[in-house]
Amino acid sequence: MTKQNKAYKFRVYPTEEQALMIHKTFGCVRFVYNKMLAERKETYDHLKDDKETLKKVKLPTPAKYKQEYAWLKEVDSLALVNAQRNLDKAYKAFFKGIAKFPKFKSKRHKQSYTTNVVNGNIQLLNGYIQLPKLKRLKMKQHREIPSEHTLKSCTLSITSSGKYYISILTAYEKQIDPKEIHTMVGLDFTMDGLFVDSDGKKANYPKFYRQMLGKLAIEQRKLSRKKKGSSNWNKQRIRVANMQEKVANQRKNSLHHLSKELVTHYDAVVIEDLDMKGMSQALQFGKSVADNGWGMFTSFLKYKLKEQGKHLIKVDKWFPSSKTCSSCGNIQPMPMNMRVYACSCGLKLDRDYNAALNIKKEGMRLLASAS
């Protein structure tokens, strides 16, 4: 049996009193995080050349600040502990060289906090969820959480348009047996339509952001003309935020459906290990890359395949999938404006379909060498 985690996200409807406590907790979590980071930054600046001493320094905890700032005691103490844990993770990632030095949080950051399940302090009730300091919070539970799942933690957040959501993290055990690979598909990322697969099919993924761009630009211009902080400005800000959230929700929903379809039909999916951030900067395709949501799509693929014992195979980003002939293996230059791969061996294919075939072949080679 393998231990698994799964999160369920629902919309919640706090009362005015509960909303006030939620926002107070957001502020306290941000305050404690920034205070701890400021102390760590000061210590790091003084001792960065003496790493052995730096490792032995006793780091601050939320309890230290409660003595000086009594109002921190009003909010959920576990939320403050989780702020410390998040900072610890960011700090360790920096020292491992996999992330930059942690940044201070501001009100413009995503507003959220996490609380843990301790001695039954969090319970699912009929249409409600019981949380520390909030008591019974109204929740729209559109899907059931299986009875064998154990609640671990809850994260409360608010969107730019003022909607409240709760993400409930659960743990469960499941027997996952690796499946034999009988069907495999290779995917070549494309700016137009997300991907082309090695069966010659295109995802035909809608460009939700591009579709909304004209209307969004009009609403953003209206926002820029209004006095910042006024009632009309706030109404227009919410209108813009709702449009942006609609695009994000459409994108997420569509990517869930596409990934589920692939996982249903194939035992293994082969993709290129692409640096999307680098691509968007180097090729000046920022909007197109963000609109496609390739990173989100691959993360959906990964966990859905893993749940079924299936396989996600990543091909090196430097593998010349577009330049290689899928028939004879010849390599030739392929500028971005050349949309058809024509080889001296007689092969003539759409460049993306040809690349997808090469990605699938490389995936099969990697599997063979691994076994």
Rank of each mutant, 00 (worst) to 15 (best):
K252A: 15
T150V: 01
K41S: 10
R136F: 02
P14L: 02
A342V: 14
K51P: 03
D267H: 14
N116Q: 12
M296Q: 15
K314G: 05
A7D: 05
A99E: 07
I129C: 01
M212L: 13
S167Y: 03
Y341N: 03
Q84N: 09
C28S: 11
E307F: 09
K73Q: 14
Y113G: 00
N234E: 15
N358P: 03
D192A: 13
L151K: 03
Y8P: 02
V185R: 05
N242A: 02
Y303P: 05
P102R: 02
W71L: 03
T298C: 02
L213Q: 15
F26Q: 06
A70N: 12
K202I: 07
P335F: 08
H149G: 12
F94W: 07
P320W: 07
P102M: 04
R136S: 02
C343N: 05
E52F: 12
Y128G: 01
M191V: 13
K9R: 15
K140E: 12
F95M: 05
D316Y: 04
T43I: 15
R339N: 10
T53F: 15
N249K: 11
M334D: 09
H46I: 13
F208W: 12
Q211T: 07
M1N: 14
Y353V: 02
R365C: 02
K105A: 06
K55V: 08
K41H: 04
K252C: 11
D352Q: 10
N126P: 03
G295Y: 14
D49V: 00
D177I: 14
G229P: 13
L216T: 07
L20W: 09
K92I: 07
M139F: 14
H142R: 08
A79T: 08
N337Y: 15
N116F: 05
A217C: 09
A355E: 08
R143W: 02
S160R: 14
G309Y: 08
R351T: 06
L366D: 05
M364W: 12
K9C: 05
K246I: 06
S322C: 03
F104P: 00
Q220S: 09
D197E: 10
P333A: 08
V57A: 11
Y8F: 11
R339E: 11
L312E: 08
K35F: 01
T53C: 07
N330K: 09
G229T: 15
Y205H: 13
T190V: 15
F101G: 01
D188S: 01
V196K: 11
V75C: 01
W294M: 12
Y165W: 12
N249A: 07
L255I: 09
M338F: 06
C343K: 04
L59E: 09
G309R: 14
F319L: 00
K96F: 05
Q244N: 14
K227N: 08
L262H: 10
K302L: 10
L255M: 13
H46L: 15
M334Q: 15
N249D: 10
T298S: 06
G97W: 13
N126I: 02
V270K: 08
D267I: 10
N116K: 09
